[in-house]
């Protein structure tokens, strides 16, 4: 009983912590004239929202584009991370730690170095200014996260379960669908969401590889934030942040529902 109360309080605190920065943004998005020392805006206006939602601003189209790029990046990154994570988690081979460091490298290297180096390469290949070029570029910072999550998941995964299924006559596809995937599903989901959020928040890579033609939401947001338009920044920021928060909330719900991983049997 006491534990339930504590856990509810902890959840509430976490939710508040996540939502707090959004409150001033939400107020700004409907404020017309909010100057020091007023605690609240002198007038409310929907002008910023009506601009943000009008076709002129391109925000709605940009939201769809940002979502598409993040979703494709997430699917490809997770698909690539699955075999990599399995190999790194299960096998002990020479040079394994070197591979791990290399996998981690994009998450550690400064983004500007990656962006500048990639831009020249992508320009020569003719991939700049295209959505697929941007997806390819986003894969670089996104890949380490699902790979590391799946490495940890596969390290705890007992392949004897697969052997058992095979002994009972399951074909490789059946083993994958009925034994392996259900066991690693929470890890796959976590990795996919992390890759999605990494792509969702890219600014520099999108700007340099997209050449301005692939206008994701962070690019639009930055334009308004740097020109002192707090009302427009607030409205666009809400449109930008809410889907990401919804995605995280979905993940947390799913996580608490799913069963814990099968424990590695003692040998």
């Amino acid at each position: 009983m006491k534990r339930d109360v504590l856990s509810a309080l902890a959840r509430l605190a976490l939710a508040l912590f996540l939502l707090m920065p959004l409150i001033p943004l939400a107020i700004w998005s409907v404020a017309h004239g909010w100057r020091f020392p007023a605690l609240l805006p002198s007038e409310l206006s929907l002008a910023a929202w009506s601009y943000a939602l009008s076709p002129v601003s391109g925000v709605v189209g940009s939201l769809g584009l940002t979502f598409f790029i993040a979703a494709v990046t997430s699917v490809i990154a997770t698909a690539l991370a699955y075999p990599a994570g399995r190999a790194l988690g299960r096998l002990r081979f020479p040079g394994r730690s070197v591979v791990l460091v290399l996998v981690l490298a994009p998450a550690v290297l400064p983004a500007i170095a990656v962006a500048l180096g990639l831009q020249g390469l992508f320009l020569r290949m003719g991939w700049t200014g295209t959505i697929w070029g941007v997806v390819l570029a986003h894969l670089i910072p996104a890949l380490p996260y699902p790979t590391l999550v799946l490495t940890a998941v596969f390290a705890r995964f007992d392949p004897h379960h697969e052997d058992q299924a095979r002994c009972l006559g399951a074909r490789p596809l059946q083993v994958l669908l009925h034994v392996t995937l259900p066991a690693v599903l929470p890890g796959l989901r976590t990795g996919a969401v992390l890759a999605f959020l990494i792509s969702w928040s890219q600014y520099l890579l999108t700007l340099s590889i997209g050449g301005g033609k692939v206008q994701t939401l962070p690019l639009l947001l930055f334009t308004f934030a740097t020109s002192g338009r707090n009302d427009l920044t607030g409205a666009v920021a809400m449109i930008y942040v809410l889907p990401a928060l919804a995605f995280m909330a979905l993940l947390l719900r799913q996580r608490s529902k799913t069963a814990p991983l099968p424990n590695r049997t003692d040998r």
């Binding site: 601009y51 002129v56 601003s57 334009t223 308004f224 740097t226």
Partner: peptide, 18 residues
Amino acid sequence: VNWFMWGGSDQINRYVSD
């Protein structure tokens, strides 16, 4: 025409895009 321009003013954006 791909016209790159400072985009920080909704009024200027509206004049150009509309």
